[in-house]
Design a protein around this nucleic acid. Sequence first.
RNA 1: GCGGAAGUGGCGGAAUGGUAUACGCGAUGGUCUCAAAAACCAUUGCUCGCAAGGGCUUGUGGGUUCGAAUCCCACCUUCCGCACCA
Length: 817
Amino acid sequence: MSKAKYDPAVIEPRWQAKWERDGLYRAVDFDDSKPKWYALVMFPYTSGDLHVGHWFAYTGPDVHARYRKMRGYNVLFPFGFDAFGLPAENAAIKSGGHPADYTSANMERMIVQLRTMGAAFQWDRKLATSDPGYYRWTQWLFLQLYKKGLAYKAKAPVNWCPKDQTVLANEQVINGRCDRCGTLVVKKELEQWFFRITDYAEELLGFEGLDWPERVVTMQTNWIGRSEGLEVDFTAITRDGAEEKMRIFTTRSDTLFGVTFMVLAPEHPLVERVTTDDRRVEVDAYVEVARNASEIDRQSTEGDKTGVFTGGYAINPVNGEKVPIWVADYVLMSYGTGAIMAVPSGDERDFAFAKKFDLPIREVVSPSGKPSRELKEAWTGDGTLVNSGRFDGLVAKGPAIAEINAWVKAQGWGQPTVRYRLRDWLISRQRYWGAPIPIVYCEEHGEVPVPESDLPVRLPREVDFKPTGASPLAESDEFVNTTCPVCGKTARRETDTMDTFVDSSWYYLRYCSPNITSAAFDKDAVDYWMPVDQYMGGIEHAILHLLYSRFFVKALRDVGLLGFDEPFTRLRNQGMIVFGGAKMSKSRGNVKAPDEMVVSHGADAVRLYMLFIAPWSEGGSWYEEGIDGTRRFLNGVHFLVTQTYPADAIEDESHEARELVRLTHQTIRSCTDDVEAFKFNTYIAGLMKLRNALQDVHKSPVAKTVAYRRALDALVLLLAPAAPHLAEELWKVTGHEYSVHQQRWPESDRALSAADDFELVVQVNGKVRDRLMLPVGVDEDHVRQTVFGRPRISELLDGKQPRKVIYIPGKIFSIVL
RNA sequence: GCGGAAGUGGCGGAAUGGUAUACGCGAUGGUCUCAAAAACCAUUGCUCGCAAGGGCUUGUGGGUUCGAAUCCCACCUUCCGCACCA
């Protein structure tokens, strides 16, 4: 047996090379002898190299995937790079290089890092979204959506980031600022490409059968923002006396009789037609200010409402009343119909507006059932209808809404409807580093899709890619000038590129058959591997990437390419590692790289430390010193296995030996539960505890027993997912067959992990006063006698009779005086 | 403002109704050494006490219970999400 010192610098590269040669981690397509397990980590952007945050994110999943393999699964655990897009392009511009060179250099560096980490990623399946062999199929998928009517071009008010010089999707605007650079976003009216995600709004609300964090489900549900209500047509009277429909949406149709004014969004087309001459100047000025204000400016007016009277009026169909029409920016053109009925008595915003501009307020829902004398605030709670004609006395909300909706519908004034906050996904970008949108414009035939046989539409390399606001590709004559696929005459290419999130919406499908050149993915491989059994990544993708991917799967299903509804069955989010109280980022300069620690302590020690530093799902703060602890632990395991492993062990039934067997099985159980539950920190703590117990007895006779040898074997097997190199080395040193990673995960035996005796805690008036050892299964009478016979207890009782006695077998004996 | 999560030693954290502080870091003392580092051994929540032993302690204040970090109520703090969505 080797007596060599533990030297990770020697054993780690050696085993990594062997595993690679043997294809140890290769996933076998269509292996029906085992259950399949598709484990997926969110692939990284190529905007820098990996820091400890990445390692923290990936180490847990790596352990989990290795554990699944030991549990007998055929595991797919691929890796790739989200190489296109703003993050990489901006980083490249900053470094002065070409995005293509910059990203490929980063990818190479990251692969080296991940290899030294000993990750079980399957490199034969690696992909990069900027590879023409990949984006060819991104373009192809775009064309499938286009043919199905799910991709379209339209002029619409869009979010524009002045710093990144491109449009952004709604989902990429956070509090009115650009998701990437934090710059205030402005609205522009532009012709852009969209995906019709709103067609799937209802279906995207269904999460049945998905094991996802509640948080993420809530966030997506809120983002989609379903609300049921009633569309009602009021009659607006235009300034030249004509009547025109003014459609509004309300979720509180039971308050229709409380309407005292109407409000239009500043962008609403009707504003122009209802504004009277004497109000013209003021209204135009207000609309102009609102149009130019950024989202954040408009939001900052919250609580202090602004608006102007148009001079026009509308007629409420339910009671024939004529009410004034106002313009105010608290009504958004992007939601509902851009026009509202205002009921100040039942809506806080309308109430504030009415108070400010001295508009009438009429109560229609009374909590007491009788009209109230004075209204100090809007009442949004339950109550009974008043001042509502024939509907007086109905219970507000549910019952009244049902009655009034039916009546309004019967009268032909409107109909019940469902509205969503979700907008269509804006996918075109005026940037260089992305997949070109495969569309050609011909003077005669207009918008023409590029024939599939002509894909990919290649991204030219020699282009001035600095952002200017116009698409950089428009500057390249070679790119722009082409011929019409229909008539062959000269035509121009679309010069916008696709949002990075399009690339990442289908990469998990590509992993199933990453090298296929005849299709985006092999149908059989996708049928075998999909859906992803476990998806792991950061919470920052709760809406964007996850919602888009769900949409993609549903859309491709309807195109006929997929036979399932959801991409990711189980989702787990890791927490964040912060340093100096802030998220690690290059711009803050607080990025910690793991590479030096690998050199000084070995990859296994770093891996263990990543698992041990904080609960995986919570994250925590970075501190460097703890790495010594995991290295000491590995040194200790190496010492015990190489120096004290009893090759010729003896059977022994001593108490000490039985205790060791018990601890071994308890550890197997707790480690199994912890890995299953992504509680990697307590998994490592459990291994340390077992090592400590072995350390305590390694010089005693127990160290010669079968129990001791089995404990060491179990320790090595349980350690294998976390410290793969050392475990492999020790597995070999102890004479076992290669590879430890192909062994079965140990099983815990309940009978063996059960103890012979237990410590009973005796409480008197809730305080611990005594402890005693008792055999398991002892009967209660015996326990009573023993406890009351203890000198400490009788002293405390002092002859008094206990008022109450509670005995929880195996745990506690509680005496109340 | 609304919604959610969290608050435990000097530090990272464990324990989800039954021995609070597992596991690790750090610290203190010791062994080894000319010395230091490493390694190993011991101690380590606070506090009173020579000791035996006692008291206190999971953000704060109340409650339920034989028993509460854990359940309930109110409040404080931090983080996250949403934020005029009609």
